[in-house]
Design a protein around this nucleic acid. Structure first.
Lengths: 99, 99
DNA sequence: CGATCATATCAATAGTTATTGAACTATTGG
DNA sequence: CCAATAGTTCAATAACTATTGATATGATCG
């Protein structure tokens, strides 16, 4: 995860997606589902470089577990993987795991 | 910082130093000072590769602001830079800065 | 079906980074 | 001052990664 966020382009993408993924919504039946997200095209607009570059970086972020992607018709919707982010956050609170 | 922690060797060093830097102590006059730390040699014992490699990675961690180093006689004492770690932690709580 | 839009993959390349061993600097103790 | 110990810097190399443009796949719409 650190490696994935270590690249400036990916960090930008990650931060952009964070602003597009304001958590999840708890539905009537108590089911949890994500609200919004950004398409690959949306991400492209916030990053210099072509779609192939963005696609490459999205794959890296996905493989690191930091984001998820889901097909919605002809679009791919990208979202922050909240759980992974929380994991990272708690790691920073206890980096050596000895506490 | 992410880039610095993205390397496995550096992450090991960082985690090791975390286990050696259990916060600071508040002295009798209310002054805050660090307690322990590890020498470069100590770090070498926990990482495969020679001292030159360790020195290289320590420099990277230092330049990223993640650790501090201080001469103590003929030793260099390395410590986690707590403030930077907190910064990272709070970044993870609000990655887009929009909250 | 064929055209078009959205995204992914591929191959080539340039740039960066980690690792190694050797040479160098700094500090202490005799 | 000399020798020994602790770290750092340097040069060479190998491995990896980001970026680019071209090509391919996948989905929708007329």
């Amino acid at each position: 995860m650190f490696k994935a966020l270590g690249d400036p382009t990916r960090l930008r993408i990650f931060m952009f997606l964070s602003s597009c993924s304001p958590e999840v919504v708890v539905g009537e039946e108590g089911e949890v589902r994500p609200v919004v997200g950004a398409t690959v095209g949306d991400v492209c607009c916030h990053v210099s470089g072509g779609n192939s570059l963005v696609s490459f970086h999205l794959k890296e972020l996905r493989q690191a577990g930091l984001i998820t992607m889901e097909r919605r018709g002809k679009y791919m919707v990208c979202r922050i993987h909240t759980k992974a982010v929380e994991e990272l956050g708690s790691f920073m609170c206890d980096p050596c795991g000895c506490q």
